[in-house]
Amino acid sequence: MASNHGVEHRDLLAHVLLPVANEEDARGTARMLAPYDPDHVTALHVIEKGEGVPDKTPVEQSEAIAAEAFTAVHEIFPDAAEHTAYSRDIVKAIFAAADEIGASAIAYRSRGSGRLLQFLSGDLSLKLVTQAEYPVIALPQEDTET
Rank of each mutant, 00 (worst) to 15 (best):
F119A: 14
I137V: 13
S110G: 03
K92W: 03
A105G: 09
Y108F: 15
A97S: 14
Q131S: 07
Q131V: 03
F119H: 03
D79S: 14
A81D: 10
A96P: 04
V129Y: 12
E100P: 06
S104R: 12
L126C: 04
P78K: 07
S121L: 15
R88K: 10
L126N: 05
A93T: 00
F119M: 14
Q118K: 15
P135G: 03
K127R: 15
S125T: 15
Y108C: 04
L117K: 15
R109C: 03
F119V: 11
G102V: 03
K92C: 00
L124E: 11
Y108T: 05
F119L: 14
I101L: 05
L120I: 13
T84W: 07
T84F: 02
S121I: 11
A85I: 02
V136L: 12
T130Y: 09
V91E: 08
S87A: 12
H83P: 09
R115Q: 12
F119Q: 13
S121M: 14
S87Q: 06
D99I: 05
L117M: 14
D79N: 15
D79F: 03
T130E: 08
A81E: 15
R109W: 07
D123V: 04
K92N: 07
V91N: 08
G112W: 04
D123W: 08
A103I: 00
E82N: 13
I101F: 01
S121G: 12
Y86H: 14
V129S: 12
L139V: 01
V136A: 06
Y86A: 14
H83I: 00
Y108E: 01
S87L: 04
I137P: 02
L117I: 12
A97C: 12
D79P: 10
A80E: 12
E133S: 13
F95M: 13
G122D: 11
S113C: 10
S104N: 08
A80W: 15
S113I: 09
L139I: 13
S121N: 14
L120H: 13
